[in-house]
Design a protein around this nucleic acid. Structure first.
Lengths: 109, 109
DNA sequence: CGGAGTGTAAGATCGGCGTCGAACACTCGC
DNA sequence: GCGAGTGTTCGACGCCGATCTTACACTCCG
């Protein structure tokens, strides 16, 4: 058999090119998601797991927020063993919405 | 007394500089408001009245949306006689959130 | 195998926002 | 002054989204 590590269904991703502006704006308009994106931006790619973020919500809500970010083309997720690693889609998202990511990241440092 | 045309209380404006990113994003994340902003962008300053927009909502809701846009520093309003004229705060808003307005206006032409 | 860790899914709740209808305020023109 | 036109305010309603709790699935490790 494929000796790959995961039998889990890979999460459904949406490419930024297929995302409407409204969706992108709505995704970033939430305080929790904004924190996730900003914190994710400071980290190396594929280093942060879903539960490693300092947000004032339970893990279920956090999982939900990552699903929204995924659907907005903002993050990419990859399964590695029991953990699900994340990566901010900087270049792709910026190509689709030039300046938007810079804008939300530059705010408040 | 002051012989000015209006006894009406001038609407309270918020300068883009005093607006949080979240507020700006949330303001633009609504479909109706997005239409208002886009349509307003195509028009000359101080030419469009609140009720002259082709949006699928009643005038009460429309008035509400303009209040939100005002609070987000996106539009400026001025009373002229019985009508309330609008203007998109292009330069000021773009100075505060570089590229954001261009982004939402470039979409869909 | 069995337990610990991690993430998702389902169901329920709750608050907020968008909407409407009606009432009110103001301006203009007759 | 009176009516028409324009816009805001208020109360109520409905819906969507954010959250929690619980239960389940999967992986790693002892």
């Amino acid at each position: 058999m494929s000796s790959r590590t995961s039998h889990r269904s890979a999460p459904a991703h949406t490419h930024p090119d297929d995302v409407a502006v409204q969706t992108a704006l709505a995704a970033l308009a939430d305080p929790v998601r904004l924190r996730l994106v900003r914190e994710l931006a400071k980290a190396e790619d594929w280093t942060r797991t879903c539960g490693s973020f300092d947000v004032p919500v339970g893990k279920a809500a956090c999982s939900h927020h990552f699903a929204v970010l995924r659907a907005a083309g903002l993050v990419e997720q990859r399964d590695e063993g029991a953990r699900r690693l994340n990566r901010l889609r900087r270049a792709e998202f910026d190509a689709r919405f030039p300046g938007l990511l810079d804008l939300v990241l530059r705010e408040d440092g």
